[in-house]
């Protein structure tokens, strides 16, 4: 359903080591079957505690992390990222969610996840997203792009604003195109820029989303339960 991520150029020769964290065994096995052969699932976890333990032990490159998880202090995926903070440099987190609630998604992104995709996404798309995240890029679904545009506003940055609180005109364009369902490749073609530049813009937006002290962001997310 999520057709944002076309086939990107990043395909490392070696396989990517992945841990799947989700409390539904059916979903975990389904996802394992759907993932590309070059993705090696080295561990699985169903609760916050299990996840932190497995991640610390396996040190995977990418963790596919459900936003809602039982256990711990009730913080779900956010708590797993916080518990694995020491590994954030080497291990990348990709949030998976059915909830679609802005509050949950923004919370897990702000905790340090490198991207967010919906669970209805196809195996090829999720494989692509895993490679992209492993390569250090951010993965934005159209919905996450929509959240960002809604939270940061659709007007480009004024000079007076804190740089972190607004998106630049170019970042806005990129976010708009992603929200419209464009793949990175299509965004690059549309804006006459390279895919690498698109990825740079998306990473910059992710950074703003994570670091912005914009107090409305949290308030906004709390109000927007719907989508």
């Amino acid at each position: 359903m999520n057709n944002a991520q076309g086939t990107g150029p990043i395909r490392p020769a070696q396989s990517v080591r992945v841990v799947i964290v989700d409390d539904h065994a059916i979903f975990r096995s389904g996802l394992k079957a759907d993932l590309d052969a070059s993705i090696q699932v080295v561990g699985e976890a169903a609760t916050v505690e299990q996840a932190i333990a497995v991640i610390a032990q396996e040190r995977p490159e990418v963790v596919l992390l459900d936003v809602h998880l039982p256990g711990g202090l009730g913080g779900g995926g956010r708590e797993v990222i916080a518990g694995s903070a020491a590994l954030l440099g080497t291990t990348k987190f990709l949030a998976l969610s059915v909830s679609d609630a802005a509050e949950d998604v923004v919370a897990v992104i702000r905790a340090g996840a490198r991207g967010y995709v919906t669970k209805t996404i196809s195996g090829a798309e999720i494989t692509d997203a895993v490679f992209r995240v492993a390569g250090g890029d951010a993965v934005f679904s159209p919905r996450l792009a929509g959240f960002v545009l809604d939270a940061f506003g659709t007007a480009p940055a004024d000079i007076a604003d804190d740089e972190l609180d607004r998106l630049s005109a170019r970042e806005l364009e990129v976010m708009r195109l992603i929200a419209r369902g464009y793949s990175y490749k299509e965004v690059a073609k549309e804006l006459f820029i390279s895919i690498k530049t698109v990825e740079t813009h998306v990473s910059a937006v992710l950074r703003k989303l994570q670091l912005s002290s914009r107090h409305e962001l949290t308030k906004w997310a709390a109000e927007r339960r719907l989508l």
Partner: peptide, 22 residues
């Protein structure tokens, strides 16, 4: 013949809708 992406943006009263297929 596949999924359709619809994007609606309203800002300053101007409404835009984008409908994209593959």
């Amino acid at each position: 013949g596949g999924a359709v992406s619809v994007y609606l943006e309203v800002s300053d009263g101007r409404a835009e809708v984008f409908i994209k297929d593959r």
